[in-house]
Write a protein that binds this DNA or RNA. Structure first.
Length: 272
DNA sequence: CAAGACTCCTGTCAGC
DNA sequence: TGCTGACAGGAGTCTT
């Protein structure tokens, strides 16, 4: 799935083209995503101007004067901008948002785990957004914060990292990679981490996410950014999907296990 | 209350 | 080669 770097990359890709633009219509070819897109979305948005685009966790928030369109890319979603001639929709091109100036924002999502929801209430009244923890790249996500938060948690550290109430935007791939870089076994009880380890872990998460954003961001091989280029962060995985391969640091074979129903990859020698 | 299982969906890949 | 089945994955929700 697009993890946070992909969502951020997507935001940066679409934002310049759609901010201040006025919606002409919304064409919905497949409304059944994770939740059904409401039928009258085109009526609601017709003639409405986008006043800003933001990201919170992996949610894209498209702000209008009368409300907000929340878009989640699920695990296989992508958004593309088209100007000029609009190509015929491909399979899984579920929604087009057409603007008065001719620009089209097209939503593509083969597995339909994504979402496109309209809210008229304020952000702090939207349940999806109210229980989210800190953004991983902001100052309030620190080693001290993580240490304090995990202090009483007996669940595995990897499970805690992937919990959006602890920190948002760390999905399975980045949880695996950051634990490897911090030298921490994913099975460790969260509360067993020393403050030093929490600091190292936060540092690893931030380095990996920043690097992924810099390189354009990609997790799934079919991720496509807003102009249709695919990312290439997947070339840099150290443990994810490398079961049996030699650890790049110590040559020990990478092991795989399942934690919280998620594939978990680690080096039993480098991670303690 | 916490932890785990289940759910949505389709493309991909292993196994026969 | 073709078919079947398992699997992946974010995150809300239901079950234990």
């Amino acid at each position: 799935m697009p993890e946070l770097p992909e969502v951020e990359t997507t935001l940066r890709g679409i934002e310049p083209y759609i901010t201040h633009q006025i919606v002409d219509k919304v064409v919905i070819r497949q409304a059944q995503l994770r939740w059904r897109i409401q039928d009258n979305l085109s009526d609601i948005l017709h003639g409405q101007r986008i006043i800003g685009c933001h990201r919170r966790a992996k949610y894209l928030l498209i702000q209008f004067e009368i409300g907000m369109l929340l878009i989640h890319l699920g695990m296989s979603g992508s958004l593309r901008i088209f100007r000029g001639i609009l190509p015929a929709p491909l399979k899984h091109d579920h929604v087009d948002i057409q603007f008065k100036n001719g620009v089209v924002l097209r939503y593509h999502d083969p597995r339909r785990f994504g979402a496109m929801l309209w809210f008229e209430e304020k952000c702090d009244a939207i349940p999806l957004l109210t229980h989210l923890g800190p953004e991983p790249l902001e100052d309030n996500f620190s080693g001290e914060y993580l240490y304090a938060t995990l202090k009483k948690q007996s669940r595995p550290i990897k499970t805690a990292l992937m919990d959006n109430e602890v920190v948002v935007g760390v999905g399975n791939i980045y949880a695996n990679e950051s634990l490897f870089r911090a030298g921490i076994l994913p099975t460790r009880a969260a509360k067993s981490l020393k403050k030093k380890e929490c600091i190292a872990l936060v540092d690893a998460i931030q380095k990996i996410l920043r690097r992924a954003i810099e390189t354009g961001g990609s997790t799934l091989k079919d991720f496509v950014d807003s102009e249709g280029r695919s990312g290439y962060f997947q070339q840099e995985y150290k443990v994810y999907g490398r079961t049996g391969e030699a650890c790049q640091v110590c040559d020990t074979p990478i092991q795989k296990s399942i934690i919280g129903q998620r594939g978990t990859f680690f080096c039993p020698h480098c991670q303690r």
